[in-house]
């Protein structure tokens, strides 16, 4: 790496221009091929569904925070590409990110987003606001628009703890980089239609973090029930959804044992009532 430009006497490369605190912006100038949007693509070819796709993600707010959960399946067409993929990640101390769509690109976007937040924090000595983080992510999703139009869309779901208001907030995205704040709960991915119906019936404002986690597991069960691309709790292999909460205490992933117990209780109850808990009619 050249660290110095002998002609002007100025530092080049990594040490030049202290102007931007955005990691992705810097990387775009320094080494553009490392950015998802910086690659050249074959023209007018659409990727088939043989590339693994991630499926259902749900998020539910509760007093003082938000819980996010994702199933563990990735599919390539009708084949299960991976049964224990992780799609929910810690973005930084006070936020979580999850992805649906093309798994490889999604995980790359998550990695870039994580570095983006940490990079800003280290350079500026402060963390971005929740909106700031959500907007930054919107830019990254938009950068992927060309790929999305060729069939490689990535759609994230972002959940953060808002310190100023002491609430959890959820942001959803469309492949063109549209950013929408969601109230109370949201679901994305192929099973999201079924998950959202389930969330609608099970959500209530007075949920605790543990109850919100249970709501998420129930919703994922309903998604897996009707969507072949979403994986249900795998009791034989002990593979359960990834569940994480973000509160004033920071990001916390629920332990494997806790989620296992929740998932088992949900499966157990479905033996009695396959449709899950029923909402009162009046």
């Amino acid at each position: 790496m050249a660290s110095h430009d002998p002609h002007s006497g100025r530092l080049a490369g990594l040490f030049a221009s202290p102007d931007t605190s955005s990691f992705s912006e810097f990387l775009g100038g320094y080494s553009p091929e490392l950015l998802p949007g910086g690659r050249s693509l074959p023209r007018a070819v659409t990727a088939g569904d043989e590339i693994p796709h991630g499926t259902t993600i749900v998020a539910v707010t509760f007093a003082g925070g938000v819980v996010m959960a994702g199933d563990r399946r990735a599919t390539s067409g009708n084949v299960i590409a991976q049964r224990d993929i992780e799609k929910v990640f810690r973005a930084d101390e006070f936020s979580a990110i999850a992805i649906a769509g093309t798994a490889g690109l999604g995980i790359e976007m998550v990695r870039l987003f994580q570095v983006e937040l940490e990079h800003y924090e280290k350079r500026e000595g402060r963390t971005l606001s929740v909106e700031g983080k959500a907007n930054r992510l919107a830019t990254m999703v938009r950068g992927n628009l060309g790929l999305a139009m060729q069939g490689l869309a990535v759609v994230p779901l972002f959940a953060g703890y808002d310190e100023a208001r002491d609430v959890g907030r959820i942001f959803s995205y469309d492949p063109a980089g549209g950013r929408y704040e969601e109230r109370e709960f949201h679901a994305i991915g192929s099973g999201s239609v079924f998950a959202r119906g389930s969330l609608k019936k099970l959500y209530r404002p007075e949920l605790s973090a543990e109850d919100a986690a249970l709501v998420c597991v129930q919703a994922l069960y309903d998604a897996a029930d009707d969507d072949s691309a979403t994986g249900g709790p795998d009791l034989t292999r002990g593979i359960f959804p990834v569940v994480a909460a973000v509160t004033s205490e920071g990001y916390r992933r629920f332990g494997e044992d806790d989620v296992g117990a929740l998932a088992r209780s949900v499966v157990e109850a479905r033996h009695e009532s396959p449709g899950g808990p029923s909402a009162p009619l009046r």
Partner: peptide
């Protein structure tokens, strides 16, 4: 030294990412 620090953060993040 602030200039060196910022460059160092970039060096670390670029390498950790790659």
């Amino acid at each position: 030294f602030e200039n060196l620090r910022l460059g160092g953060v970039r060096y670390a993040d670029v390498n950790g990412y790659q």
